[in-house]
Simulated assay, not measured.
Amino acid sequence: MTADDVIRRFTFHPADTAERRQAHEDIRSSCLELALTLHSELPVGAEKQAAMFRLEEVMFWANAAIARQPKEA
């Protein structure tokens, strides 16, 4: 890992295009839809909590992948 990698990981990356803003929204809405399904279908318990936590983690990393891609020239 280089210093540039560290800076990239810990720097804010605003969505700089309409396409990236839409991609973020698509990810959030898809994850929300699945989260609501899981919430209604899964019994209360550690497994449900783990599934919800992992889905939140999926949303985070998917949005990070969009945000951290190099800026378009």
Rank of each mutant, 00 (worst) to 15 (best):
25 E>G: 01
23 A>P: 01
62 A>E: 13
1 M>N: 13
1 M>I: 14
56 E>A: 10
17 T>R: 15
42 L>G: 12
19 E>N: 02
69 Q>M: 02
10 F>E: 12
3 A>I: 11
20 R>A: 09
39 H>D: 15
26 D>W: 08
54 R>H: 09
5 D>I: 00
25 E>C: 04
13 H>Q: 06
15 A>C: 08
9 R>Y: 04
59 M>D: 07
65 A>E: 13
21 R>D: 12
63 N>R: 14
64 A>H: 14
31 C>Y: 02
7 I>F: 15
18 A>T: 14
67 A>K: 02
22 Q>H: 12
15 A>F: 05
68 R>F: 01
26 D>G: 04
34 L>I: 12
42 L>E: 12
41 E>P: 00
59 M>Q: 14
11 T>Y: 12
19 E>M: 04
16 D>E: 15
14 P>C: 01
14 P>V: 11
20 R>H: 02
28 R>Q: 01
17 T>V: 10
73 A>L: 08
57 E>I: 02
41 E>S: 15
28 R>Y: 02
65 A>D: 15
22 Q>W: 05
18 A>R: 06
17 T>D: 01
5 D>P: 00
65 A>M: 02
55 L>S: 07
34 L>E: 07
57 E>P: 09
30 S>C: 11
30 S>W: 06
73 A>Q: 15
26 D>S: 08
32 L>C: 01
19 E>T: 04
9 R>P: 01
58 V>W: 11
8 R>F: 03
38 L>D: 02
47 E>W: 07
50 A>Q: 15
53 F>R: 14
66 I>W: 01
45 G>I: 03
64 A>D: 06
73 A>S: 13
65 A>K: 10
2 T>A: 05
46 A>G: 14
27 I>M: 09
36 L>A: 05
22 Q>E: 07
33 E>W: 07
48 K>G: 04
26 D>H: 00
35 A>M: 05
15 A>R: 04
70 P>I: 07
48 K>T: 01
29 S>A: 13
29 S>K: 09
43 P>I: 02
58 V>P: 00
20 R>V: 06
73 A>C: 07
47 E>Q: 08
11 T>C: 08
12 F>R: 10
34 L>K: 06
71 K>S: 06
58 V>C: 08
59 M>V: 00
11 T>G: 05
30 S>K: 13
69 Q>L: 09
57 E>S: 09
54 R>A: 08
24 H>S: 01
55 L>V: 04
18 A>P: 02
32 L>W: 07
56 E>V: 02
19 E>W: 05
41 E>C: 10
23 A>V: 03
63 N>F: 05
72 E>P: 00
31 C>F: 03
2 T>N: 13
38 L>H: 00
63 N>W: 00
67 A>I: 01
72 E>M: 06
54 R>D: 11
24 H>C: 01
22 Q>L: 14
52 M>K: 04
58 V>L: 13
26 D>K: 10
43 P>Y: 08
26 D>C: 03
12 F>T: 12
53 F>Q: 13
62 A>W: 03
43 P>W: 08
12 F>H: 12
29 S>R: 06
9 R>W: 09
26 D>Y: 05
9 R>S: 07
70 P>V: 02
28 R>T: 01
54 R>W: 02
45 G>P: 11
38 L>K: 10
66 I>N: 00
1 M>Y: 10
43 P>R: 12
